[in-house]
């Protein structure tokens, strides 16, 4: 009776956006006379950091400082339509909408700056620090607050933009299943190391190490947050979680966190990752999306690691100690039968 170590891997893809498309999001941008650029949305932040990454994308696309961008979201009276936050779509869809809105707003900014600085709009650039300046002559510049004031009081223009992103709805061919089921594909490869107690069937996950390819990271720390949280959720799906402990029976359905096992701070294994960036063609600044996929690859990696450790395939989730112990007993019996 002993503890056995094993290593398993899994490589997965994850499609961005609602499967068949047809899931629009809009963004509106306007500058106030304080130099604040308000991005109005109806998108929701689930904790993944949407409000932050959209402000980053907006600031980048507008060419203004992050601090000058305000996200005003999630009010259906004021915010334009968004399909919702799911399907790893929010950064991709809303980000694209914001970029388009920013392009329109930038056009007005440059028109006004062109009048103020007396150069052609195409000779202007933003410095990302809050100024529009003449290319090659940075001392000739106008601050965005002055610009916003001038636009409003002097030229009677609103610095604003409308943005929309929709991937046209794809149909499914009923006979062949031909369809267009993604906007872009992100990828992950996870290697899990486990220790299995062959006397109890207990699995201790020692480490979950992964590589991700997600197009571009808008905010690496927020990406890391998704990876850490998703890896632990994947581990929990693999080993602990179920609303039907004796599936398909419905008995003993957990009624709370006492019985429904969500890992606690002491159950977290070492989680390490690297992130590759191969910008996608259609994502904002090449973004693909990372939200959902982080919970996927750890599951098969852990199941494969259990096999590597003790030689049984646990193909019904979660891989509880009981299932592993039963499989080990079955394996021992087969080996005894084989030896006879």
């Amino acid at each position: 009776m002993a503890k056995h170590r094993g290593v398993g891997m899994a490589a997965v893809n994850y499609p961005t956006g609602m499967n068949l498309g047809g899931d629009p999001s809009q963004a509106l941008i306007h500058a106030t006379t304080t130099g604040t650029f308000v991005i109005t949305l109806s998108s929701t932040d689930l904790g993944q950091g949407l409000k932050t990454v959209i402000a980053q994308i907006g600031a980048e696309a507008l060419g203004v400082p992050f601090e000058n961008v305000l996200i005003d979201t999630a009010d259906t009276d004021t915010g334009p339509h968004c399909m919702g936050t799911f399907a790893s779509r929010a950064t991709h869809r809303v980000g694209n909408a914001v970029i388009r809105a920013a392009e329109e707003a930038r056009k007005v900014m440059f028109e006004v700056a062109s009048e103020e600085l007396e150069v052609a709009p195409e000779d202007l650039e933003t410095d990302g620090q809050g100024n529009i300046r003449v290319k090659g002559s940075p001392e000739h510049s106008i601050n965005i607050v002055d610009l916003a004031l001038a636009a409003h009081f002097k030229y009677g223009k609103t610095i604003s933009g409308r943005g929309m992103y929709i991937k046209p709805k794809s149909e499914v061919d009923p006979d062949t299943g031909a369809m267009d089921p993604d906007s872009t594909e992100a990828h992950a490869c996870t290697v899990a190391e486990v220790e299995v107690d062959d006397e109890t069937g207990e699995v201790k996950v020692l480490s979950i190490k992964s590589a991700y390819e997600i197009g571009r990271q808008v905010n690496p720390k927020l990406v890391e947050g998704q990876i850490q949280g998703g890896s632990l959720m994947g581990m929990a799906h693999a080993l602990y979680e179920t609303t039907a402990p004796y599936y398909p029976a419905i008995d003993h359905a957990p009624g709370g966190f006492n019985e429904y096992i969500v890992p606690g701070p002491q159950d977290q294994p070492e989680i390490e990752s690297v992130v590759l960036e191969y910008p996608s063609v259609n994502g904002p600044f090449g973004v693909k999306g990372v939200g959902e996929m982080t919970a996927n690859s750890p599951i098969p990696a852990i199941i494969n690691a259990i096999h590597d450790a003790v030689g049984v395939w646990i193909t019904e989730l979660p891989a509880t100690p009981e299932k592993i112990l039963r499989a080990l007993e079955e394996k021992r019996k087969e080996e005894e039968r084989g030896a006879e």
Partner: peptide
């Protein structure tokens, strides 16, 4: 936009 192979190589290097 497949990068499965590149991702697997990076994971192999990581571990």
């Amino acid at each position: 936009d497949a990068t499965l192979i590149e991702t697997m190589k990076a994971a192999a290097q990581l571990v």
